[in-house]
């Protein structure tokens, strides 16, 4: 990717971020429920109108929409994402608190997913339309069809409650608590990714250069490792980038099922509490993340595919 292109992309990102933040800000503003009431209700006492008005003024919620938005925006531009109402700490700190849980889970789920789907996808493609392929496709179809929260609950029930192999209660980041959510995510993602690996490998196996390699007398396993896989990687990297982006956003449902202290669970809680600044901060994180990963994927292509590097397109 050339420098000019990169600058162009970065400018696009800024515009997109602006749009995304404006959109979520308006949606939160329009959604029913009052953050001040939510906040004070927690205390479970009857509060006077004055207290409510006072808190509202304190939080700046009595101002019109555009004033609120610009206050938030100028804050963000100066590196201040505001205070979380519910957590009573800066939004950045709150995000930072939940990030490790999500990072660890995303990493372990991605690795597990790759360990399952890459070998299965390759086998499925190489043994196309033979029993092994049908078996793998059947399993992956099953995996795609099962909702992951349900898989999570079943795993909790069987491996946690009945067999007592893993703890049921979450709440903290540790290896044994991570196994079940990792497995749940990996099953769902691997089911999809196996099919994508299969398609990508099949696509490459149909190319003329495979015939070329066979004519040059290479055995199939060498063709597979040295030629098919590197070529099949190219389309798969995009899909992997999307998967990782999805994971790093925090997987709300899974984190709720396993009460895993990650960004997803935090976001759900923030929405429930109408914690505007925290939701805004979270959405901003997701947007930056997706765009960042997409940019990384595109940059990686120019290194992995010589046709892009030298072709100048």
């Amino acid at each position: 990717m050339k420098r000019k292109e990169l600058v162009h992309r970065l400018m696009q990102m800024v515009i997109t971020l602006f749009g995304v933040s404006l959109l979520t800000f308006s949606l939160m503003y329009l959604s029913p429920g009052d953050p001040v009431e939510m906040l004070l209700e927690v205390a479970d006492t009857i509060v006077s109108e004055e207290t409510i008005a006072e808190t509202r003024a304190q939080l700046g919620l009595d101002k019109p929409f555009h004033v609120q938005y610009f206050r938030w925006l100028t804050g963000v531009l100066q590196g201040d994402m505001g205070m979380s109402y519910s957590a009573k700490m800066p939004v950045a700190d709150r995000l930072w608190q939940s990030l490790p849980g999500t990072l660890v889970l995303a990493a372990s789920a991605t690795v597990t997913m790759l360990l399952i789907s890459v070998p299965c996808g390759i086998l499925s493609a190489v043994y196309r339309n033979r029993p092994l392929d049908y078996f793998i496709r059947g399993i992956s179809f099953l995996g795609v069809s099962m909702p992951s929260f349900w898989v999570g609950l079943i795993l909790l029930y069987v491996l946690g409650l009945k067999l007592r192999l893993f703890p049921i209660a979450g709440g903290e980041v540790s290896f044994d608590r991570m196994v079940l959510p990792t497995l749940t995510l990996a099953i769902a993602m691997a089911a999809k990714y196996t099919r994508q690996v299969r398609t990508a490998v099949l696509e490459e196996l149909g190319q003329e250069y495979i015939t070329g390699a066979r004519i040059r007398g290479f055995p199939m396993h060498k063709i597979l490792w040295r030629h098919v896989l590197p070529n099949a990687c190219l389309p798969l990297i995009t899909l992997l980038g999307l998967q990782i982006g999805w994971l790093l956003g925090g997987v709300a449902v899974i984190e709720m099922v396993f009460s895993w202290p990650g960004l997803g669970k935090m976001a759900v809680h923030a929405i429930e509490m109408r914690d505007y600044p925290l939701v805004q901060g979270f959405v901003l994180w997701i947007a930056v993340l997706y765009m960042g990963i997409n940019l990384l994927v595109d940059i990686s292509y120019t290194y992995l595919d010589p046709r892009l590097k030298k072709g100048g397109c």
Binding site: E208, T211, G212, A213, I215, R216, H227, N231, P306, R307
Partner: peptide
């Protein structure tokens, strides 16, 4: 051995 119509396409495009 064999020579094809387009010897470029029988080579791995990214190597």
């Amino acid at each position: 051995t064999m020579v094809f119509q387009d010897s470029g396409s029988i080579l791995d495009p990214i190597r």
